[in-house]
Design a protein around this nucleic acid. Structure first.
Lengths: 340, 340
DNA sequence: TGTTACATTGTTACCAATAACCTAACGTTA
DNA sequence: TAACGTTAGGTTATTGGTAACAATGTAACA
């Protein structure tokens, strides 16, 4: 692979001059510039970015750690990050943790080894332990979607899960549902806890007693949505509606409902946090609370880049909370129960 | 950020010894190893991977260039690539081209700058032009999903689009459909052309005349699926069934059908190449031809890594063609038209 | 006790690019 | 014409890690 020296030799100049041409610096005579360009073209020279990173002590890339690119919420968010990063001449290195704290730890280490300039993290562990080296070094960090307990010094961009959950639950209550099952992700993830909080607030407000047995924690996956929905529906006194803590859980729940020979919404209502992509795109049938995933990615990236470039001198953390939106369809029994 | 020298100093040994400890080499006394480990821990030392890549002349990372991580077909494929790469101690750098040849060009250049060890590419342009520098340098390359015209020296892992399309069309014909609209991606993409070929073969075989007006090329996107389906359905003599060239096109088509007040399958049949993820997971309603996307990713990565590590001495290209699978649902009117 | 073989550790050079500094040539002005 | 500024380009040192080789230490054995 040709180096800058090969180009220099061919063009009859020094490596420094080639470097100047590549980086569009002034102080190069047009005729010299042309000679160099010609040599680059002929040799098919491509600059070595890590040699460059080496001397400049920056990589112009950021790490994005999320749980699952299979989940449209995260892909959309990732697109927001990528588009914004590209606009600012940054590369994105994408890491999937699969909600596995061990993988999270590994990837954070990999990113540090790569000396990325900053990290955007949707924590799977919810713990600050894996961040030890990152915090120690003051590597710019922005948390996205999820908070981390006992970590108050870091920027966060997230949706208001508590509010969204409250709105959704209140909507169910307004339709007459009194026994509402809720299925969320792990207890370690802040969104799971907040969604349960919002659910409880709505129930309390309506004077409906909270039954802990109707609240199920699991993973944000189709499998757990399926399993836990089945468990809820085969209870002695099953709920009249199920609230899926995210899109995957809701999809799993649909499968469970179908397998039990039940119908939505006639036999059981079903609502979901996060959009159920294609499904609701095709059938505006589902009642959901959506989050502005793309914006979340954009904002987090802008925040991060500001920190990286040191333009943002503010020492305290910034917390950006985006508002969710309740989209009413028919899956909670809106048409059936109207006026009930 | 502490370097290997800082660790060496603290442990009272040379940098070389630290390097040996980090890389788990033999020839280090256990007591020395421990001293070094302690220093690493205390300093929170993290090796600099590009300094390492620099001397080793390899990065242990591969580039994956696909069109859209929003598409479940590609995310599944990407997971296959990632899992396999990780198993082999490789990192993956993911690039989204959005089917834009210009972005493809940019990303290929970025990957070369990063001196990745190899590339897996689902070409958006279908052209070999953007690959000039890569081919010139013999950077290990595996094409995935799509072939590139006039490029016969490179490994390819793909599904048999022609066959899948043939099977799907034959199925439609067997149900009595004679006017079948087909919507595929750009003419530059091999899968689009092959899917049209398979469609034509099935029609010819059944003696049904081919009407070019029923064949629409666009982009593999929801938008184009919507637009082109609408165009087909508002023709003077609209088709009785639509064949979506991929999942996104099919989703767009559903929307168009609904908007026109038509029903699937009563008014118009709808089948699709590629699985329509959540949709068919929930309702095993759609008739589709699926491709083993995950395996595609795994196989391509294994092939690539073999090339990178030089274990694969074979000079000629290898072409791996995976078989698609026809999954029959009800969306083509299977229940309505039975015995017609 | 000297020798040898092996285990362990250190030294040096190098990888590609660039910042910081340096120099030469030329033009301008007092 | 000397003094000085400007432009164009070169030189040198540096970045973190590791291969290759050199050097030292140590234990076993004759």
């Amino acid at each position: 692979m040709p180096t800058i020296y090969d180009v220099a030799e061919r063009a009859g100049v020094s490596a420094m001059t080639v470097s100047r041409v590549i980086n569009g610096k002034r102080d190069v005579k047009p005729s010299t510039r042309e000679k160099v360009m010609k040599a680059i073209e002929e040799l098919g020279y491509v600059p070595n970015s890590f040699a460059r990173s080496f001397v400049l002590q920056k990589t112009s890339s950021i790490g994005l750690v999320i749980s699952d690119i299979t989940n449209p919420f995260f892909t959309t968010l990732a697109r927001g990050v990528e588009d914004t990063a590209m606009k600012n001449q940054f590369n994105v290195i994408l890491c999937n943790t699969d909600e596995d704290p061990e993988k999270e730890q590994i990837y954070l280490e990999v990113l540090l080894r790569k000396r990325i300039d900053g990290i955007i993290l949707a924590s799977a562990s919810g713990k600050r332990g894996p961040l030890k080296n990152i915090l120690m070094r003051d590597v710019p960090l922005v948390l996205i979607d999820r908070k981390i307990e006992h970590l108050d010094s870091v920027d966060v961009v997230r949706g208001d899960s508590e509010l969204g959950s409250y709105l959704l639950t209140r909507h169910l209550v307004s339709l007459g549902h009194k026994r509402i099952g809720v299925i969320v992700g792990s207890r370690h993830i802040s969104t799971a806890l907040e969604r349960v909080e919002g659910y409880k607030r709505a129930l309390k407000e309506s004077g409906i007693p909270i039954e802990e047995d109707l609240i199920r924690f699991g993973r944000y996956s189709k499998e757990d949505g399926y399993k836990l929905a089945k468990a809820l529906l085969t209870m002695e006194k099953p709920p009249t509606a199920i609230f899926g803590g995210n899109n995957f859980i809701a999809i799993g729940a649909i499968k469970a409902i179908r397998e039990l020979g039940l119908r939505v919404p006639e036999d059981v209502g079903l609502v979901s946090f996060d959009d159920i992509e294609s499904l609701s795109e095709v059938y505006p049938f589902f009642t959901v609370v959506t989050q502005p995933a793309y914006s979340m990615g954009v904002i987090a990236t802008e925040l991060l880049i500001r920190r990286i470039e040191g333009r943002d001198k503010v020492k305290e953390k910034r917390e950006v909370v985006l508002q969710p939106e309740l989209i009413i369809g028919e899956s909670a029994g809106e048409k059936l129960r109207k006026g009930e």
